[in-house]
Design a protein around this nucleic acid. Structure first.
Lengths: 405, 405
DNA sequence: GTCTTTAATACGGGATGCGTAAAAAGTAGC
DNA sequence: GCTACTTTTTACGCATCCCGTATTAAAGAC
């Protein structure tokens, strides 16, 4: 069915949602303009904004002289109340754990980064770590803890948002970690879990390049390649609720065996471990030991490529080519309006882009390639963490017409 | 946004839609049961069914003794009025053109099949052909022509539902044929165009194996391989509105060049032309000339395989394997609840299934493969044509909450 | 023929959105 | 500084919708 039975209360909720979304999107907006944009009558907009003010979600900020005429009663601009709610966004990865406190508008209030290398740690240890970081983050911001409404968290590896469990993640020692219930138990707050690529997708949809797209994809290249898919105005999770698999999609090639046992998986060409091995061969024995490569391998390769190292260029071009083949599958099957390739640095994008675009074009149907825009976006820890927060914010803004997930 | 602003009229329309859908789905159903299933109050259901009866869309059929008790006032069963509307569904393919007249319930009323081989015919000739077939079909049924509300049509090749044009289809001589406006001009009826796989998807969703799925895919193997994708309760058309490309997805292999110029496209292994060439090599020179092979090549191969011909078995197994690889991409990226493989015969399914399943499993991520069900469905001209009709019926039943496409 | 049971329909209450009219809140001009 | 004007915002009345309860309708049970 897709849509709930309608009754007057739902009607009001739907319109309230539209008004709140309009305000969120525009930051500061007058009642008249809300009315124009939503097509709701002025009367209704007044009633709804009145209720929202009552609830403490929005407030009158200042008045604005109207458009051109400069005459008549000035419009009162309405905006979200920043501290109507706070949400914590957490990003865990092998090299860095980031905690960000986000206000009701989605703006970052404070942030804590832990440059701790995690690999196969006991879940309890990581939970301790996160708990401390959250405390720091909240203390720094000096806000009322009661206003924190929940936690969104992104964990690398296989993640099931429905059960809230993380499976065989490289950061955890255990194979299966009920990360949400672990954190819920410690904090008493609702916790939502997603895979990083889905958080990126959420972030792009709320704050980034995809604010009004019906369908787009985010390809993230971190330890492995992963994919977040946004279809029909929502994350696509598929039948398993695990979200799309991108790292194990087949990209052709020499039949290289992936660690999953299958052949020619994308990850068999682009995962961090594989790149490390190839870099050792191609760049000489000293490269891996260099400070730059130890800090960020791909970044070091990109720097080398930019400064004219042919081996580094060739390696990154191969990376781009394999990613491009994988992306061609997305273009052929889904043909989203945009595919956002999230990378750690702009140099990396420059080094990979030509080969990636060429491979994508060479392997996808022309009409589809022409309508899907490829965008390179420097991956930003803050944005990512804000995506995690948006995961929880979504619940507060919840679209009322679809039955609960 | 995705959903319209709500007002009382929309509210009523939404609930009306739900009631009508419930009646359509159940065939015969009492007001009480509608109320239970939709969660609308009895009062509202009475009001809505009253209006629907007024409009002539539904009618009281007969009364039913209530559930167990056999006591009390019997329930009046409501059902769709079959001749509230009629729709024509047309399927054009190279070997056969089918026209089906479908009533408001989606039941086929009459059908005409033209076993005419079409290849690069002028559009006007085909339009003449179709017009005659439609006339025959309507005359056979002896209904009021004024009740025909529209035409849904499926044409092989590249098809743009938005512009209503067919591009480089094997049946048309011209590269670009504005098929909808051509037929609209001749009949004065609204015409909607889709690619066959999308019509199959629509048929499966309305009448077939996917009546309550949120997401599923239909893989059709006709002259070429094609794909219809159903995501979030609607056909997924993508940014180009052309729908997914399946025939040109890359499935690995020996680097065989496809007619599109790229390498290792699925079609380079499974299209009718390719199979014909391979069958000539593998089955000996007489095979292609045989009556069975001339009538239906793949069917002839399947028959041979079933009776123990190893060359035919091997050929079909290779077909299945390549399709399986293509399907693994669907599983990995979309992970729909079901993938329905529409084939021309059950024998063909038997001959290809093992290799197809094996290849799909070997190339897709385990958790995703486990949650996506593979179903073989014998492709049925009638069902296909009913799908074409459903394309138009959808408009009559139109879901009111989404803005017009 | 009356009683019991269940289905379907009026009726009143509550909530919503819309259009119009009135009030509010500024600017422009003198 | 006051008045006229313009535009925003709110108040009021009306129409529509859904829901819960009471009432009527239509059967079988006795």
């Amino acid at each position: 069915m897709g849509v709930k039975i309608a009754d007057p209360l739902l009607m009001r909720e739907i319109n309230k949602y539209h008004v709140l979304e309009t305000i969120r999107h525009h930051g500061q907006i007058s009642r008249v303009e809300i009315s124009e944009r939503t097509l709701l009558s002025g009367t209704t907009v007044s009633a709804i904004t009145g209720a929202l003010i009552e609830e403490g979600l929005i407030q009158a900020t200042h008045t604005q002289v109207n458009g051109e005429s400069q005459r008549g009663r000035p419009r009162v601009l309405l905006g979200l109340v920043p501290d109507a709610a706070y949400v914590l966004g957490i990003k865990i990865s092998e090299a860095m754990t980031t905690v960000t406190l986000v206000d009701f508008r989605g703006e970052s209030v404070s942030s804590v980064q832990l440059p701790v290398r995690l690999a196969r740690q006991p879940a309890e240890v990581i939970a301790d770590l996160i708990e401390d970081a959250m405390d720091d983050c909240v203390n720094k911001a000096d806000i009322d803890r009661k206003r924190i409404r929940g936690i969104g968290i992104g964990v690398p590896g296989l993640v099931d948002p429905r059960s809230g469990k993380s499976y065989s993640s490289s950061v955890f020692g255990e194979r299966e970690v009920p990360i949400t219930s672990l954190l819920e138990g410690r904090t008493g707050l609702p916790v939502k879990l997603e895979k990083p690529a889905n958080l990126m997708a959420l972030a792009e949809s709320w704050f980034g390049y995809a604010q009004s797209e019906r369908s787009f994809a985010v390809v993230a290249l971190d330890q492995t390649a992963s994919l977040g898919l946004w279809v029909e105005a929502d994350l696509h999770r598929g039948a398993s609720t695990l979200g799309p698999t991108f790292g194990h999609i087949k990209v052709g090639g020499a039949g290289v065996v992936c660690e999953c046992g299958q052949r020619d998986c994308l990850n068999a060409y682009v995962s961090e471990a594989v790149i490390r091995r190839k870099a050792a061969d191609a760049m000489g024995p000293d490269f891996l030991g260099s400070a730059a490569a130890r800090a960020d391998l791909k970044q070091a390769l990109a720097d080398a490529a930019v400064t004219g190292n042919p081996a580094a260029s060739a390696l990154l071009a191969e990376l781009g080519e394999k990613l491009g083949v994988g992306i061609s599958h997305i273009i052929n099957l889904i043909n989203p309006e945009k595919i956002i390739i999230a990378l750690e640095s702009a140099q990396l994008g420059e080094a990979m882009a030509p080969a990636l675009r060429a491979a994508a074009e060479a392997n996808s149907f022309r009409a589809h390639f022409a309508t899907t825009e490829l965008i390179f976006h420097t991956l930003d820890d803050q944005l990512w963490a804000r995506g995690a927060a948006a995961l929880m914010l979504r619940d507060i803004y919840s679209a009322p017409w679809t039955p609960a997930y």
